[in-house]
Design a protein around this nucleic acid. Structure first.
Ligand SMILES: [Mn+2]
Ligand SMILES: [Mn+2]
Ligand SMILES: [Zn+2]
Ligand SMILES: [Zn+2]
Lengths: 142, 142
DNA sequence: ATCTACATTATAATAATTCTAAACTGTTGA
DNA sequence: TCAACAGTTTAGAATTATTATAATGTAGAT
């Protein structure tokens, strides 16, 4: 649970000016026990709840992408219709709950290391990620 | 390389009226040696090339989604900013070339079966898919 | 305190997708 | 055979997510 001055330093370190909007975004994104997943809409709601003044949508987009470029955030592709972001920027796999549209992180131990036997000439592997789609296990589907 | 009458039958079997637009879409999508990946834009281009009359964008969207629902097409999530579709509807993994934005199918033999050790209570696994992002292997990146 | 580069903002623009409602067409059965 | 109907296509409008613009504001340096 870092204090704001830590965010100011953190932002400075990567060459971002610690403006009040960015500090507030840091608080909302990183001032929590666990990493989490969000859409831009989620984030805008969280920000408007926790902030007296309002923050413009353009700033949220710009800052999220600035954070992404700096490696503070990772974009996750699950649904072509929505962008999900992740404050857990390490390489990891996901469960996606198709009922609730929630993302859940996998632990290291949940899935064995993936061994890729094919290689594409002239190309290097940037990432290997598994997406496990789950849904409710009702017998209702005949 | 099926002829059109096969497409007419195929469409009938799943309760879709074999209209000339749908038949043309079947030709473009399925009258080829290998399965392939496409975006809506790709498909619209292909259709306008191979068709004398024009087909409306709404029809392309509607028909793609009708095919998807019937299991003739699968939607692939790689990029939150664009929808990719796949005429290979079986469960399989992908390489994604981040330079060319091309999808490449993995063979069964390219990646071992993924073993999931975690299970989410009350949820069943619908799919397990691996996405391997690749990019050019230039030493240009210091 | 002043300056300046960088940020934020409201708003407009763009892009992808979906909706609408009128016109059209494949199929059925009289 | 052909009228009738349900399903389909269509152009264009509407919606949604995202990005661009350009005027205004502000952090940090001097
Ligand atoms: Mn993005
Ligand atoms: Mn879709
Ligand atoms: Zn995650
Ligand atoms: Zn594929």
């Amino acid at each position: 649970m870092p204090k704001n001055c830590n965010f100011i330093e953190k932002l400075r370190e990567v060459g971002l000016r610690p403006t009040k909007q960015r500090i507030k975004m840091c608080e909302v994104l990183y001032n929590r026990e666990k990493t989490f997943h969000f859409t831009i809409n989620d984030l805008v709601k969280l920000l408007s709840e926790k902030m007296n003044e309002k923050i413009s949508l353009a700033t949220v987009y710009n800052t999220v992408h600035a954070f992404e470029k700096k490696g503070y955030l990772k974009e996750i592709s699950i649904d072509s219709h929505k962008s999900y972001f992740d404050t857990n920027t390490s390489a990891h796999h996901h469960f996606f709950d198709e009922d609730t549209h929630e993302l859940i992180d996998c632990d290291e131990s949940d899935i064995d290391k993936i061994n890729i036997r094919k290689n594409i000439t002239g190309k290097k592997i940037n990432s290997v990620e598994v997406l496990v789609r789950v849904a409710s296990d009702n017998q209702t589907q005949k």
